[in-house]
Design a binder for these strands. Structure first.
Lengths: 113, 113
DNA sequence: CAGATAGTTAGACATATGGCTAAGCATGAC
DNA sequence: GTCATGCTTAGCCATATGTCTAACTATCTG
């Protein structure tokens, strides 16, 4: 299991939290200071800080401090590994789709009874 | 926060674990019984069962029992919400880049004068 | 029926996660 | 210098997660 694997796990893990996804969506509008990001979440600053730390470790955001204000910004390229994984999976999964589709339908039918 | 949100969180969470991703990759080769999935992970059966439960709750796999054998199979459509989210983000994130681009151009122009 | 096979359930346990409060530490405004 | 602002650190707490062992159920096989 390469570091590549860890990257993906961190990425998925970071995105698994609604608060963090909403922070990302907010940041998509442009860079913002910590407090501005905290405000709409209704969470306390330290809590938001930890979310930001998770996002930063996953490489999804970059931050820098100017005076006493820390500005956060998204790192668009960060989603690439995920996109790549998704595309890989699609290729494999879809190559079996016809066969699996039959199987899944059979399973679903059995479930209903 | 709608059900949609929970779906995404569950999906990302399910995919955040390397063991679960490897199980999915294995299943991409075709449906398989529990023990066959457990073997390459080096984990005990109950542990693998829990991973399978997580995958099933996220809608990523479907299972059915025939005799004493439970067969698992991937559910390709399950990745759709994630793909959709990813595409949405790409649109926003990239439009942000465009805006930044505009901003830079504006600054450069102002500098010239 | 006896024994092997394939899952399943229950419960224990260590660590991780997400939230909070209460201080603490720079920096900017007066 | 003093005070407000904005972030940080430290530490607490409840719940969730990933792993295991041990014991149980259900289903073939002979």
């Amino acid at each position: 299991m390469a570091k590549h694997d860890t990257d993906l796990s961190d990425l998925f893990h970071a995105l698994a939290d609604p608060t963090r996804r909403s922070i990302l969506t907010h940041l998509a509008q442009g860079p913002a200071p910590v407090s501005e990001l905290a405000e709409p979440t209704g969470l306390r600053l330290p809590t938001v800080m930890r979310h930001l730390a998770v996002l930063e470790e996953a490489g999804l955001i970059a931050t820098s401090k100017d005076g006493r204000v820390r500005t956060c910004a998204i790192v668009p390229e960060a989603l690439m590994p995920m996109r790549t994984w998704l595309d890989e999976q699609r290729v494999i999964w879809e190559s079996r789709l016809d066969r699996l589709d039959d199987y899944v339908k059979k399973v679903m039918k059995e479930r209903e009874t």
